[in-house]
């Protein structure tokens, strides 16, 4: 069996590290394709209901706070930058920057999840905006819905898509944070800096993908119907 340049790191089914890296990267892209269709089922349903009930979706969107959505977006973009830099550091074999960038990415991701759950979702809950759990918009929220002339059950439909889509997105973030923790531990032990940066690259692809999903969720959920 022909040996690659770094024999210990090449799994036995591969001829060399190039083939191994190629296969892993291709596999990861295919995985992302499945993720596109996984989220895609949600986006398709969302598109159907939004086209049926434009007023209710606009009203529902006005129940969310743009400031949250915008700051998440910025946080994720920052984390994508640090992630890209982490991969680059691994490629160049620089251990300290690698760990630093990974930790930054992790912090940004964790902050995203914590803010979303602790403040945004909890706030929605207090305002009775969570369909199936407690949905009875009051005060200002009710006024907004009236202004758009939207039936309550259709607004609930928007809210459920908001919770499911951001919820599944957040779940992906949690997985990502877990993966980053693992990367940091391994990097601390000296992995990834001698030609075996592949794992970091794979996690990076995943992380950027989750960022992209948010890039669509932000305008589709937080910015409907004009804010003028």
């Amino acid at each position: 069996m022909p040996e690659g340049p770094a024999p210990a790191l090449v799994a036995e089914q591969f001829d060399d590290i190039i083939q191994q890296r190629d296969a892993a990267s291709f596999g990861m892209w295919i995985f992302l394709a499945t993720e596109i269709l996984f989220f895609g089922g949600l986006f398709a349903s969302y598109a159907l209901y939004r086209s049926l009930y434009p007023a209710a979706f606009a009203a529902g969107s006005h129940l969310l706070k743009v400031a949250y959505g915008a700051s998440y977006t910025v946080m994720l973009i920052c984390s994508s930058l640090t992630m890209a830099m982490a991969v680059r550091s691994a490629q160049l074999g620089r251990r300290k920057p690698l760990i630093g960038f990974l930790v930054l990415t992790l912090l940004l991701g964790a902050a995203f999840v914590i803010i979303k759950l602790r403040w945004e979702w909890y706030g929605d809950y207090l305002e009775h905006l969570v369909p199936g759990v407690s949905f009875a918009p009051q005060g200002e929220a009710l006024e907004v819905i009236r202004r758009f002339g939207a039936p309550l059950s259709h607004v609930a439909l928007f809210m459920i898509f908001y919770f499911v889509m951001t919820g599944i997105h957040a779940l992906h973030m949690v997985v990502g944070v877990g993966l980053l923790t693992f990367l940091i531990i391994m990097a601390y032990r000296g992995r990834f800096v001698s030609g075996d940066f592949n794992t970091v690259e794979m996690v990076g692809l995943y992380w950027h993908f989750v960022d992209i999903v948010w890039i669509f969720l932000f305008p589709l959920l937080y910015l409907i119907g004009g804010r003028y």
Binding site: S25, F26, W29, I30, L32, A33, T34, I36, L37, G40, G41, F43, A44, A47
Partner: peptide
């Protein structure tokens, strides 16, 4: 790799 991503998007557009 590009084909993979384009195919996924194309398929999603079929659905929608």
């Amino acid at each position: 790799t590009r084909i993979v991503i384009i195919a996924a998007l194309l398929w999603l557009s079929f659905l929608i």
